[in-house]
């Protein structure tokens, strides 16, 4: 899955940086979209995964769900940071500023960044793992209200940020030459982030179940 993700990202980057035509308004600067949109999309998907894992853990006391939530957090944090950084690199030439305080889209994504950070710090700071899972899990679940705020921020408030380019309900506001590398990048980023999250989850589960017979066998087998 990691290899397939990296291959798709390589193809998407080649298509986006080299094959796709320049934009008639934004010139070549729009190519940042091929990095910005997949990272922002995955940042939100991983947040949803973290929150769903936490919710399942809170309701059904399922330890595997907590492990997946804890594994998704650092990956989501990295993608949120990347979405913010690439957005700033796009904002400077297009809007004339790296950052705009008071812009709903930018601020709500920054809030997500701090939600991830808060989850990880809270989780790491509590000695008892089950307490850490529950406390950080509640934070993750409460923070879900931020996801629709991010998604609809550009429609609810006037924002510097442009509206959605691709949508499931409407025809995409982008030509196919420009669209396909973006879709390939999104698929690649999704495969990549789930591969990385699964690797982290394996480490997390082995650590948590280290006393169990099967975990000892897996570690002894070197798998």
């Amino acid at each position: 899955m990691l290899g397939a993700g990296l291959a798709a990202i390589a193809v998407g980057a080649f298509g986006g940086l080299l094959l796709a035509p320049p934009d008639y308004q934004q010139g070549d600067a729009y190519r940042i979209i091929y990095f910005h949109v997949p990272s922002a999309y995955l940042a939100m998907q991983l947040y949803a995964l973290m929150a769903i894992g936490s919710a399942i853990g809170l309701v059904w006391r399922m330890k595997l769900a907590y492990a997946i939530a804890a594994a998704a957090a650092p990956v989501g944090l990295a993608f949120t940071g990347l979405a913010l950084a690439t957005g700033m690199l796009w904002g400077k030439p297009m809007w004339g500023a790296y950052w705009s305080w008071g812009d709903a889209r930018l601020t709500s994504v920054l809030v997500m960044f701090f939600l991830y950070l808060g989850y990880m710090l809270l989780h790491a700071s509590l000695e008892e793992r089950s307490t850490a899972d529950r406390a950080a899990g509640i934070l993750a679940v409460v923070g879900v209200v931020n996801l629709p705020i991010i998604k609809f921020s550009v429609e609810w408030w006037s924002s510097l940020h442009q509206g959605p380019t691709i949508s499931r309900l409407a025809a995409p506001a982008i030509t196919w030459d420009m669209l396909w590398p973006l879709l390939v990048m999104i698929v690649g980023a999704a495969l990549f982030s789930f591969a990385v999250t699964l690797t982290r989850a394996r480490a997390e589960v082995l650590l948590r179940e280290r006393g169990a017979r099967w975990a000892r066998d897996v570690v002894a087998a070197g798998a």
């Binding site: 070549d28 940042i32 990095f35 690199l89 990549f192």
Partner: peptide, 29 residues
């Protein structure tokens, strides 16, 4: 098209973060 100072750092940073994520996960396991 004159936007090299924005497009290339964006691409470079993206690949650096991907590499960091993959290596960190493997190191952790």
């Amino acid at each position: 098209g004159g936007y090299a100072a924005f497009v290339w750092p964006c691409a470079g940073l993206s690949f650096a973060i991907l590499a960091g994520l993959a290596l960190a996960a493997r190191r952790r396991l």
